[in-house]
Amino acid sequence: MVIVDRHKCGHCGACVAVCPVYAIELVGTWIEIGEECKECGLCTQVCPMGSLEVGT
């Protein structure tokens, strides 16, 4: 699973744009990560704030 640090996230949507399986949704001022996530880590690389991490 990808873990989101909500205190760091700037709700910009960059992660949503790169997720190949559409697992991320920017709801309003927070993001949600769905079960589809295959832990590829692309979203963690693009995040300007470094608020995403592939964890267990």
Binding site: V16, A17, Y22, E25
Partner: peptide, 22 residues
């Protein structure tokens, strides 16, 4: 940038890491 509308209609707008500025 976080568009889903196209994806819902079957248009894949996913960006490669080399095609997005952070």
């Amino acid at each position: 940038v976080e568009s889903k509308v196209g994806r819902w209609a079957g248009i894949d707008t996913t960006l490669k890491l080399s095609d997005i500025e952070s």
